[in-house]
Simulated scan of single mutants.
Amino acid sequence: MNKPTSSSPFTLAVCAEMIFLDLPMLERIQRINEHGFQVEIWDWTKHDIDALANSGATFSSMTGYITGTLAGAAGADELLITAAESVEVAKRLDIPRLNLHGTGLNSEGLPVQPCQRITGAMWLKACDTLNRLADLGEQHGVTFVLENLNTDVDHPGVPFARLEDVLALVESVDRPSLRIMLDVYHAQIGEGNLIELIRRCGPYIGEVQVADVPGRCEPGTGEINYPAIAKVLNDIGYRGTVGLEGWASGDDDLALDRFRAAFSL
């Protein structure tokens, strides 16, 4: 059973792929759970699903596909096939949100199919693919969330990476089973103007991910004014999950305490 998250109006989660890195995955999950946070994972194919299901943790989100892409005919079909496989795993772990990107990413976060220019045909195909994913989400009672990424530092060549692009796609589909995974770290690097971006995305936010810039560590280690981010999320009525998807700048336990403090109002 998760401990209460202090005075936060949000549900707080921590990415097990980036914290307690000296421990095996199951122990990381148990430590995060002991701190009172939900748990995010990435590629489910790399984990012992039975062990995760019996860990006692509550999971917030995971990657919602194995391979595929939004905007190519063969890639979209492949994405839908692997998304359906991912849904079955999500149901076993009671995970409500499945994360998507503009194209498949390799182990270093680089696009399997890099793209420097998005055509009109790609936009139309991406909308069609996302509608098909929304159908799958509605059928199984899960939400697919499309994440914004930055192409300057971490993910060069990913199409539909900017939050402006993600918002345009999700708005055009406009279905409850498709929402935005709003990553504040990536948005700061790629676009800035965070408070206005958050306000614009408000009705379509499915989950928020955070880390500071530069370094991608916990809030309070860089330039982002996270108390202001927490305030605007609260002001627009957001009551969903905020997940730390960042490294610990030093001590892992202290990093989690700082994260909790940043989102306790």
Rank of each mutant, 00 (worst) to 15 (best):
D212L: 06
D253T: 04
R199F: 11
L105T: 07
T69W: 00
Y204W: 10
V145G: 06
H155W: 01
F259I: 02
Q38A: 15
E196I: 13
L12D: 05
G206D: 12
Q30E: 13
T241V: 15
Y238L: 00
G240V: 04
L110P: 07
V39R: 01
M18C: 07
P9H: 09
A51M: 04
I195N: 05
T129G: 14
R28W: 03
I66L: 13
D22I: 01
H155S: 05
S7T: 03
C15T: 08
A121T: 14
Q30F: 00
H140I: 00
L124Q: 15
L79M: 12
I205W: 08
Q139K: 15
A255H: 09
Y238I: 02
P203N: 02
G202V: 02
P214I: 07
A51R: 13
N106L: 06
D165M: 07
V89E: 09
S6A: 11
L233K: 04
I180H: 02
T241Y: 07
P227R: 05
Q209H: 14
N99M: 14
F263N: 04
N234I: 03
W44P: 03
P156S: 00
G202E: 10
A13N: 11
G237D: 03
D128G: 11
A211S: 13
S86F: 08
L23H: 01
T241M: 12
N150K: 03
V213F: 01
T221Q: 13
I81F: 01
E191Q: 13
Y185F: 12
A261R: 13
H35W: 10
F20C: 01
K91S: 14
V142Y: 10
S7W: 01
V89A: 07
G120L: 12
G137K: 11
L178T: 10
S6G: 00
G192Y: 03
V232T: 09
D165S: 13
E196T: 15
A248M: 04
P176N: 09
I95T: 15
P156H: 04
E196M: 14
H35L: 08
N106S: 08
N150E: 03
P159Y: 08
Y238G: 02
L12E: 10
I118C: 06
V112G: 02
G206S: 10
V208G: 07
L169Q: 09
V184I: 12
R200W: 12
L52G: 03
I66R: 14
W42N: 12
V39L: 08
N33Q: 14
M25R: 07
N193S: 14
R175I: 07
V213D: 01
R179Y: 01
A74Y: 13
R199I: 14
K91H: 14
R216L: 05
V208A: 04
C217H: 15
A255K: 10
M181Q: 13
V173A: 04
G157W: 01
N234K: 12
S61F: 10
M1S: 14
P4L: 09
L194G: 07
W42Y: 05
G36M: 06
